[in-house]
Nucleic acid binder design. Sequence first.
RNA 1: GGGUCGCUAGCUCAGUGGUAGAGCAUUCGGCUUUUAACCGACUGGUCCUGGGUUCGAAUCCCAGGCGACCCA
Length: 477
Amino acid sequence: MASNKSPNTPAPNDSSDSGIEGIRAARLQKAEDLKQAGQQPYAYSWDITHPIADLQAKFADLEAGAEEDFNVSIAGRIMARRVFGKLAFFTVQDETGTIQLYLEKKTIQAEMGEADAQAFNHLKQLTDAGDIIGAQGTIKRTDKGELSVKVKQYAMLTKSLLPLPDKFHGLTDVAKRYRQRYVDLIVNPEVRDTFRKRAKITAAIRRHLDELGYIEVETPVLQSEPGGAEARPFVTYHNTLDMELYLRIATELHLKRMVVGGFEKVFELGRVFRNEGISTRHNPEFTTIEMYQAYSDYQDMMALTESMIEQIAEEVTGSNTVTYQGEEISFAQPWKRVTMHDAVKEKTGIDFGEFSDLAAAKEAAKGAGVGDVDSCESIGHVLNEAFEQKVEETLIQPTFITDYPVEISPLSKPHRSKPGLVERFELFMVGRETANGFSELTDPVDQRDRLELQAAKKEAGDLEACSVDEDFINALE
RNA sequence: GGGUCGCUAGCUCAGUGGUAGAGCAUUCGGCUUUUAACCGACUGGUCCUGGGUUCGAAUCCCAGGCGACCCA
């Protein structure tokens, strides 16, 4: 028999009745049997009286063995089945939590027997872990202390065709967790909490900035000239214009155009795209927030950053202290501020402010165990290497690093009192950079010079360097 | 891009040259207090791919693919 093979639809295998295809075929048959029994395997609706977490809270004090003649109707996914001859226990999970179904043949047959003389047997034979089921009944805490719905009536809401991952080990394959997020969300409840917290954080950011008089904007994602960061862009193509376009690598340059246009406080919370390495820490598409405020310098932006993050932490977690991967992080203001030169000096003993000779700076850096300095083209770059290799991972508590070398900061204003430096900060916590801010460069002549330096690097083959965005210079002018 | 490790049943994993394995899941039977239910029976495999060594390869060698972690 000829068959078209494809990875998604493996050819049926006659001898396989417990492989994945066998399971799927068996479950399709169960869906068919449900229809024969007068049940719809994919229901249109089911009335719910309570989220499961509400029931767990409401009856937290109910004693083991006690019953409550309180009618409830719930719905959720069957996560585990424990079936006996005339009694069964299902663990059911909805968005809010889990509860046990107490499924007694006697009760179910009395309530449903008229519609389906085999209602209990069908429950045993035609349901599987993974199915979404609706259940209506009363509240009972079993002798063993598990809060349960003593079911009078049930209905299949969605028959699943594929098995859930191992009930004990769960889904541990990181790649599969990320590529099949829906499975991850089903079997790893803590992942749902992460999603909820994230939604609370973005809502709190918007509320906070709205109260400060910011307006939220959406700037172009498709750009003819990507800029605002050093990164390789994704390239796409516009048919009608017959030209290549790039997905943005940052929102910066268009937000600054908004400021030029007269909006004094703007922000954008949105996706940017960088065509680079991929790992569990680096996604090619990720979300950033950029905020711009006219007439303000980097000190103002640091103050805004620390107060906003402390308040959000309190709103989302109820505390300004959070534990992240075993580290206790305190967001209590004020956060530590230290210049890049001082931070490097503290860890390496080297004061890069004393060097005027590049070669001498490289020697000193090597002496302190800093690698990869041979290709550095300025003392500022050597300083940056030393910082990244020796300091960054030690910054666990929120810390602002300030006053960066001009060579690595093409968009910042020169420092008002320190030559060769710019008014820039980066925020570090748990050893990673989490924010970056400047007194924004507003001098169009200086800006052109710095972008042309970048363009020269691009000409020389640096795939992360950007070109001169003439329209942006025009806006500044 | 470099290094290390991995890829065996739906899931989690054993198996270092001699008949392809376990637990869970699935299927069948039993069971009214389980919660990783239990008891009994069955089923399920391109051992990532290709080549090589060997009487014989999941196992050793070479090349490639995919993935994880670390580094850049």
